[in-house]
Simulated assay, not measured.
Amino acid sequence: MNLHNTSYPATSKPEELVPSRYALKVGEIDVLVVSDGVLPLPTTMLAHNADPAVRATWLHDMFLPQDAFDWALNAVVVRSGDKTILIDAGLGSDPDLHLPRAGQLIKRLEAAGIDLSSVTDLVLTHLHMDHIGGLLVDGVKQRLRKDLRIHVAAAEVKFWEAPDFSHTAMPPGFPDALRATAKRFVKEYGSQLRQFDEQHEVAPGVVVRRTGGHTPGHSVVRVASGGDGLTFAGDAVFAVGFDQPDWHNGFEHDPEEAARVRVGLLREIAASGEMLVATHMPFPSVGHVAVAGDAFRWVPVFWDY
């Protein structure tokens, strides 16, 4: 399966007349960014430690609504050698939180011509429900390979045995849904987990590295080949994090550490000139990072047709 310059079957319905997949090459490695849809969330989730007036000004300057807006949800498929790797699995079925426009990943993988049985490895940046829920959709497990390897940081699995939400600032219902989804996931897929401590090579040129911060075992994935590189940053980076990297996102379990991780990662990617993709950056979320004084600047790639 070559994800680049491939003719995909025209299976989208009229309501799917939106861009939902974007293919690119990183050296000899094929990468496909796939949209799982969007999550409507309160804008306070972007920065619960910020002065409301300053936050309101940022939203105004970005032409965004003041009360709530749509957070993108992105996952990535990587083909390296004989391995097909899915990075994160989307929200899955709506967990009684009224999120009808998310959970699109499985049908969009199908529309892209990607059979679930072809996935040899799954990398989870962390165990929040919008990254693992797709695996809990009815019928999905039966379509996955019996020898599927699921790579996740050991610290992440340990954390969800008794998660601490004391430093988060989530809307009502989210903590319970997160806890229940993680518990169910570990119960159903525990035997297939391949836990690592700090860093692990999943396939040639595909390395997952624990960063912590957002959650204790939060990880990022770097894809590198032929002098090119791309980092999938999971939830380490949000749209507001370039202008205001010290603003605390409501889902961060250790906001101070998450801010340090974010700054360090953005500096690293800016210095390398490599590409960045992140879960909640606007689709297709492919771009570069530039340094802008004490902050950063997001530079989206020009779409490659």
Rank of each mutant, 00 (worst) to 15 (best):
A233N: 03
Y8K: 14
I85T: 01
G212Y: 07
F238S: 13
P245F: 08
A292C: 12
A68I: 06
H126T: 07
A56M: 03
G241I: 04
H288S: 13
G92S: 11
R267C: 07
V207A: 04
P216I: 02
A68R: 14
H288K: 15
G229V: 11
G217P: 05
L73F: 00
P9H: 13
F296R: 03
G190P: 01
D67L: 08
G293T: 10
H98G: 04
P100L: 05
D30Q: 09
G134R: 12
V220Y: 04
K187Q: 15
T279C: 15
P65H: 04
A182Q: 11
P65C: 00
V202L: 00
F296A: 04
V206K: 01
S35F: 11
D51C: 06
L24V: 06
T43E: 07
D254V: 03
T211Y: 05
V137M: 15
V26M: 06
D228Y: 12
S225A: 15
F302N: 12
G190W: 03
V18Q: 12
E16C: 06
L86Y: 02
H48E: 08
T231K: 07
A270I: 05
H126C: 06
V152K: 04
A292Q: 13
V137C: 13
D51H: 08
P175T: 00
V26W: 07
